[in-house]
Amino acid sequence: MSIKKLSKDVFKSFVDALIASDQQVIGVKEKVQAKGNRFAFDNLQSADQLRLDYDITLLPPKKYMLPQDETLLTFKVAGESKSKIDNSKLILIGVHPYDMIAINQMDELFSQDQQDNHYMTRRKNITIIACDVATPSKNVFASSMGTATVESGFDILLTDIGDAYVAQAGTDKGEKLLAKASGAVNASDDDLAKRKAIQDKNKDALNKHKLNCKPSDLPGLLEKAYDHPVWEEKAKTCYSCGSCNTTCPTCYCFDVQDQVNWDLKTGQRERSWDGCLLENFANVAGDHNFRKPREARFRHRLYRKGKYVPTKIGGQIACVGCGRCINGCIPDIANPVAVYNRILEDIKPD
């Protein structure tokens, strides 16, 4: 796979050419929000809007593989249903390494056992141009989780080396796309050295919260922490709002509901995001709730990240250290590092 160097002008022309093509191009834009400007993945109308120097997006890019709402089936009311597979293609520019790793995990989860073709079709139709982090966000801890850089999953990986981007193709699709960047040159040893320096720095610098153990110690630690007081200590101020779930790049639980159209004859079966912190998540008919206590729901999320989901994905820890749950949590209890470190005060990992 080739590694090219694209001057900022060449890169801008490359992105503008992508926007002018028939594919939808999504990138990171600065958006005006009530509490000041924030970054978000959105449709790009011009390369000038793209902000690869962003710190963190409000929502992770999972919304393009697993949209907040999507139609799984269309149906005649009380009759037959048909599959609705979204086949649209898009290019996603600016995925940070930790988000790329989260997407790689979701790819594994949605393809294993019985494959989910709604997710997988979307995923196959998305071309990902990832980029190394240029500005650490205020709560990132990817360095602690080993997710500050990424080796696979992207079609192209960009690294800003000052006056230019180093662009590494990761797949044949990426290779072909990169070949279209007119004006790109082969990256020199000097360019690669600059890129390595940035990646090496990120491996340590994306660490606003330092986990006091190796990520691989977490399953063993949690094995012994089920009845630890931290769950109640933290959860007693939890609003059960589910913000930690919805902003998480590795949360993929969903609900399915039927929507009937105005004609009352046709409709859609729709999937939408759900969250295990929401009070009715484990409710069954008859109003029996299998995970009613707040602390049990709070614990479940941290166990999914550190112990349960890892058993499904070859031991990878399902927290990638983006810090979005910390940003989104009003009572400031969601920080996984604070929880795991609190347990480490009392329990030593094996």
Binding site: L109, D274, C276, V284, H288, H300, K307
Partner: peptide, 24 residues
């Protein structure tokens, strides 16, 4: 056991009890 087995195929998370997906 009874749980909220919404998807039935080990994806949606509703039936989970600890690390077990009851639907699987």
């Amino acid at each position: 056991l009874e749980r909220r087995m919404k998807c039935g195929v080990g994806k949606c998370g509703h039936c989970q009890m600890n690390d077990q997906y009851v639907c699987q």
